[in-house]
Design a protein around this nucleic acid. Sequence first.
DNA 1: ACTATAATTTAGACAAGACTAATACTGAAG
DNA 2: CTTCAGTATTAGTCTTGTCTAAATTATAGT
Lengths: 239, 239
Amino acid sequence: MAPASAAEQDYLKQIYLLQEDMGRATTQMLADRLGVKPPSVTAMIKRLAEDEGGPLVRHTPYRGVELTERGLVLALEMLRHHRLVELFLSELLGVPWDQVHDEADRLEHVLSEDLEDRIATKLGNPTVDPHGDPIPSREGVMLERDLLRITDLRPGARGTVSRIDRQEAPVLQYLASLGLILGAPITVESVAPYGGVITVRVGSPRGEAVHSIGEDLARHILLTCGEANRNQAVREGTE
Amino acid sequence: MAPASAAEQDYLKQIYLLQEDMGRATTQMLADRLGVKPPSVTAMIKRLAEDEGGPLVRHTPYRGVELTERGLVLALEMLRHHRLVELFLSELLGVPWDQVHDEADRLEHVLSEDLEDRIATKLGNPTVDPHGDPIPSREGVMLERDLLRITDLRPGARGTVSRIDRQEAPVLQYLASLGLILGAPITVESVAPYGGVITVRVGSPRGEAVHSIGEDLARHILLTCGEANRNQAVREGTE
DNA sequence: ACTATAATTTAGACAAGACTAATACTGAAG
DNA sequence: CTTCAGTATTAGTCTTGTCTAAATTATAGT
């Protein structure tokens, strides 16, 4: 549909992800995530902003960048490719959890529409990937799920790990070693008042292991919580 | 093992293929196959010849180019990737046999060694791809098969289609429409003396359709022939 | 042996993407 | 209101891989 180089696709995807979880995308943040120096980002943004066939991003100098409608479509297409491939590798080839992300990062750019469709069909048109991240539909729509970050719960709250919003293999390995994998039931034991440390019990309500997790990491673990917990579980200040 | 860009990999693969089926690789032939102009080929050959870490090709100006040991290893690795992917797409995702080539051409460059292994294992370490082309082993060894080109048979000879040495989708579609697919039994009906046209009967010895095929195309259809046919089937001049 | 044609290579240009060094802007603290 | 630290941008360079136009070499035909 739209011809964009692999590099352009990477930038668009990353701008989308930053908008989603930081609220905005700055030159610096993009440089970090893409493993590139800031001037390279500025240069690419310029190219994306004056793409023949319409701008893919809107750039306010010194103020950051945001996707246009066209850019969003391409970003979501990449995200769909990426997450479908992750699930495909995991389900059909047994690639370990923590490795699918890196493989998918390379494969996503060379996936034809036809192959995308075949993979989606083979997997039964899935809506989430192996990390619990939502897979956009062909039309760019993602399933809304009512998830809460561990950091938004108060002690005593319980839930099931449903999404992990980090992709670095070592981080995922570490979490898995604590039993923090998709579907694991957990209970928040305590939240250190200023320390930024959260203690969770992993497994059945009264069994298993208890682990302390830094706030930075805990923020990326999302849970589904039963109705019971939902109302009073949210910390103040989150609204 | 060796870092080579996608473009370099394409050149090495194509040089290998040309050496294999033309005996040598010239600038022009490479330009045609790679969809590139001759000066680009010369430039790339120069780069391949003075690769840091040892030359990948040997170039005799105006005389063509050939792979070094190092270049051969890389070429075979690409060929393995390509053919494994073809089979994978065909077997596990039902991609039609005339399309797998083009998909594989893009995927071959982003396949990790780990993924290569997983695919090979999943497919039972296959030795031929959907076109009957041999898949090199991890060590770069290919199964030797005793195949004869249709053009090397004389009238009356019989055999089974076992390899088709063309990859263009329209050509493959055409052959399939004549029933010339892997495993089809055929009989050579006649060979026009100077015309370059060969007539074959497709299907059981006395049934089915008869088709005329140009020599250029027929040369790319390889057969397994029973012992009976083997000895006297070979045209003179082939040794 | 000589010459026309075809194939090859050289020369020089360009686009994509990245980098470093230098400059400009923003925002927070005094 | 000024200053300073941090972030962003510009300017200029490099590499990869491609192109066109021009020059060179090989080869086939007489």
